[in-house]
Amino acid sequence: MAQIISIHSFRGGTGKSNLTANIAVAVASQGKRVGIVDTDIQSPGIHVIFGLDEDSFTHSLNDYLWGRCAIEETAYNLTPGLQTADGLANISGQVFLVPSSLKAGEIAKVLREGFDVGLLNDGFQELAEQLNLDYLFIDTHPGLNEETLLSIAISDGMVIILRPDRQDFLGTAVTLEVAQRLDVPEIMLLVNKVPQAFKRESVIEQVQARYGVTVGGLFQENEEMLQLASSGIFWLHYPEHPFSQEVHAVARQLMAEQ
């Protein structure tokens, strides 16, 4: 049975999709079958990191929600196209992505007409079964809305991403309170975009003391990430980089917890 892990941040711009993509591929590199669903229907984009062009996919999560296709028809096997800095990557597992549409009309349709939130729950379970997944990562919309609450509620584990920023700190407290009310079994915090000048141990200590939740990883801002500009999976391009080592450490913790 697949383990469902939702990745969330209270505010936008935390690097949630980038970390989701990197961690998911790191888990797949350990021989696992991994699915990712982009439930950030209002501001999707994780497919861009995987180099998946809007014109190159025939179906998206939006099509499933409108009853135009089955959920498994919206999943794309990204494994053969994963790139390192030198060419094609060779990982032992499989990565599938269910993208949300980046077409303005499709986003507007969701906002205008709404959709059956229950269909998402059925879709997650069906997808995990059809693709025989070990892990299903849900890239959620920042903040709280109906689909995010559902994603959190059905998760076996939740990763909350925050920056060392006062607004993120206050928002994360809200997310944690909600996650606790929804009985999420495992919660992990990741601190991202930490300035190089900040002391790692001090930030981790501060965050853990504030929330009483384990900090599973801390990622510092770096020039290489800015240069890659969401055009690939960072750790495949920079396997020896400290950021990449941290990604693998988080992946190992998630696999150990489940």
């Binding site: 009309g105 959709f115 939130v117």
Partner: peptide
């Protein structure tokens, strides 16, 4: 079975939606 609600659409002037579709 849990009875899940449909996520309601937002009320915005029709001409704005039409411009987007």
């Amino acid at each position: 079975r849990p009875k899940m609600a449909i996520r309601k659409g937002r009320k915005v002037p029709t001409n704005l939606w039409d411009a987007l579709e």
